[in-house]
Simulated assay, not measured.
Amino acid sequence: MEAELVVLATSGATTLITLMISDAWVQVKERVAHVLDRGGAKQDDVLRELETSRAALLHAIESGDGTRAAAIEVEWRSRLLHLLQSSPALAEDLQSLPAPAAGTVYNHISGRVRSGLVIQAGRIEGSTIHAPLDGHSGGTER
């Protein structure tokens, strides 16, 4: 039973973190807080904790701090495991949380580049990109 709870806590934390960085967060955060409130906390307190975690997560992602982002997920996995151990009925509610939409993609670009062109696509055919060769405007084709 313990292994099942660990798997559920891990899956729940991954889903929670993915929801926090998605556009769906606005729609699901109160439902998440309601589910987590079953552990005995007040829903407003849980909402504040979720928003604090989300802000820290977004800051970590924006600053390229993968270690901090991973630590936030570990914190939620630990918290979910504790809640599941004290209230096994929470498992059903946790599993009812919406999964992030299929096809939702989050990409983070980090590094020392201050500006530049980024293209993300599933498939590009027959495109011409015009960019300055020397960093000045001029539209010279590359």
Score class of each variant (00 low, 15 high):
L5Y: 13
A9C: 07
G12P: 12
T15C: 11
L19G: 11
S22V: 03
A24Q: 06
W25T: 00
W25Q: 03
V26G: 00
Q27Y: 01
K29Q: 07
R31W: 05
V35N: 00
G39S: 01
G39R: 01
A41R: 03
K42Y: 01
D44Q: 14
R48N: 13
E51H: 13
S53W: 02
R54V: 00
L57P: 02
E62N: 12
E62T: 06
G66N: 12
G66E: 15
A70T: 02
I72F: 07
L80R: 03
L81V: 08
L83V: 00
Q85Y: 00
Q85F: 01
P88E: 15
A91P: 09
E92A: 09
Q95C: 08
Q95D: 11
L97K: 04
P98R: 11
G103D: 06
G103S: 06
T104Q: 10
V105F: 12
H108S: 12
H108I: 08
I109S: 03
I109K: 09
G111K: 07
V113A: 14
S115G: 00
G116S: 13
L117C: 11
L117W: 07
L117E: 08
V118L: 13
I119Q: 09
R123A: 15
R123H: 11
E125M: 13
G126C: 06
T128G: 10
L133P: 10
D134T: 05
E141N: 09
R142N: 12
